[in-house]
Write a protein that binds this DNA or RNA. Structure first.
Lengths: 104, 104
DNA sequence: AAATCAGTTCGATTAATGTCAAACGATCAG
DNA sequence: CTGATCGTTTGACATTAATCGAACTGATTT
């Protein structure tokens, strides 16, 4: 079996703006967001993100973003990928992700 | 003399997105932002904001927002007003403030 | 001049957060 | 089966941040 989503993600209807902002008010997670901007799924492996962090720290940031409704996880064997929930976010918070990704 | 702006505000060119997000990733300051959404200057006095906080706490939040580039202060004698730097913010972070104010 | 008022600053307390290392669980390779 | 790999969880530590009350500053009023 592969690509089953099996980490719990919140319904965006229950996510508040302040939750999303808290999740993104961190340089590491903002960098992760930028990488995810291409709309594709990215492996959780360290080299992917251009960040000099331990894997446990990275794992913490992934969890934070997922619980804030920003990402979903795709599990395939022992590797994981994450994807930005861009369409759903655009419905819940129109224009927000776009403006964040456009900022330099 | 009145309405001289005399609290230092940063040049938005030097403000990073993460600074703005940190400043807004708080329910109190998000509420203040909503009040400022009408574009007018609002007095710092407590009844204005619908928040049950001591004045020293409110003062802390105003300072945080000002230093993040979100607001400017207008001093008139012993009373102060603050205003959202909306036009400048729209140039530096296009669409961001609008999407935040539209979120429910 | 003295009292009052608006707002800031300071110090203390408490809670939340980012980071790492170590241990753990599950999957895959030999 | 054994060992390596991917990622999570846990616990510890240090830092940041929100809040309050008290003291303070400067402006206004009496």
């Amino acid at each position: 079996m592969s690509n089953d989503q099996q980490y719990p993600i919140p319904d965006l209807a229950e996510v508040e703006l302040v939750d999303v902002l808290r999740a993104l008010a961190d340089p590491v997670r903002l960098q992760i967001l930028q990488v995810l901007a291409d709309g594709r799924a990215h492996p959780k492996s360290q080299p992917e993100w251009g960040l000099d962090l331990q894997k446990s720290t990275l794992s913490h940031h992934f969890k934070t973003m997922r619980e804030a409704g920003l990402t979903e996880t795709l599990v395939d064997g022992r590797t994981h990928e994450i994807r930005l929930r861009r369409d759903e976010l655009a419905v819940r918070f129109p224009g927000l992700i776009d403006s964040l990704l456009a900022a330099r």
